[in-house]
């Protein structure tokens, strides 16, 4: 039982970061290989706050998000004028430099890591934060802000000619995305109780991107599926020991060939065929009871 909860908690922590990455990559169309960097900043920020400054965990959690967000604004100011691929390279460099900076800050333990963090997060608190994260993201995507993100992904030039400030909107997307990653980092630090810079290396950023893509870009449901599936899969495969990561890699390749748009394929839960059936059934009943609305919703 303990083991399953651990796996699901880690899935929740990954989900938090993938939700943010999904906003940036899936909805706004900007790839990032630096999200482990934001996670790292969030993890260290909240660890310093709770251990050194004895700040309550909830405040440290929020601060972790905000500090990661603030750093993303700096990064964004410098790099978001770059076109597609160049922005990706910049985030890659950013992620690695964050790791190396923490590697060299001796008072924080340097490469040996930061230990003695209180275990403040658990399965329940992680998933409560995730649910709040999902809730806000759904609402954001159903607003004019959310629609502007998608517009930029679809057609940048047309977006600016309908009055969207492309740079500012991208910056907002990166900012919110980094907040999610920072909060994820804080949850991670207070679950593992020990963090070290190499926890947040490039491979971690890559994993998040794979989760977002396999789950399905442009879909919050997809982020949830991707984070859950790819956190659980390596655990399920543990019985084959050395071949585990090979099978994991093969599974990722097969999934992307079979479903190039990811498992959710850009659709949300409410658009899945079985949910649509259930909703139709439900609507028919409603329509029978109230024939006045002419079947319109």
């Amino acid at each position: 039982m303990e083991y399953y909860l651990t796996v699901l908690t880690l899935a929740g922590i990954n989900l938090m970061v993938v939700l943010g990455l999904g906003l940036l990559t899936g909805f706004t169309g900007l790839f990032s290989f630096g999200h482990a960097g934001f996670m790292c900043i969030g993890a260290y920020t909240s660890a310093i706050l709770t251990v050194t400054l004895k700040v309550p965990f909830v405040i440290a959690l929020i601060a972790a998000g905000l500090v990661a967000g603030a750093v993303s604004l700096l990064l964004g100011r410098l790099t978001l004028k770059l076109k597609g691929d160049y922005f990706l390279i910049a985030t890659l460099g950013f992620g690695e430099s964050v790791r190396l900076i923490f590697d060299n800050i001796e008072p924080l333990g340097g490469a040996r890591g930061f230990s003695g963090i209180a275990k403040n997060s658990n399965f329940v608190s992680v998933w409560i934060v995730c649910l709040i994260g999902i809730f806000f993201l759904v609402r954001l995507m159903n607003s004019r802000y959310g629609r502007n993100f998608t517009a930029i992904r679809e057609e940048e030039l047309a977006s600016s000619t309908i009055g969207i400030d492309v740079f500012k909107t991208k910056l907002l997307s990166l900012f919110i995305s980094a907040i999610y990653a920072g909060v994820g980092g804080s949850l991670y630090a207070h679950y593992m109780t020990f963090i070290k810079p190499s926890n947040f290396a490039l491979i971690k950023s890559t994993e998040f991107t794979i989760m977002a893509i396999i789950g399905g870009l442009g879909s919050i449901t997809g982020s949830v599926i991707g984070a859950l599936l790819l956190t659980i899969l390596p655990e399920v495969l543990r019985f084959i020991a050395d071949w585990r990561m090979v099978i994991y890699g093969a599974a990722v390749v097969i999934l992307i060939i079979v479903r190039p748009k990811g498992i959710a394929g850009g659709k949300e839960f409410k658009d899945f065929f079985f949910v649509v059936w259930i909703r139709r059934l439900f609507n028919k009943r409603l329509a029978k009871k109230d024939p006045g609305n002419g079947g319109k919703l």
Binding site: R144, N148, T150, A151, E154
Partner: peptide, 19 residues
Amino acid sequence: IRLFKEMTVYENVHTACHL
């Protein structure tokens, strides 16, 4: 033509109403 290709007709106009 530069539409938001993968959005529906409704969403295309809906997005443009943001102001």
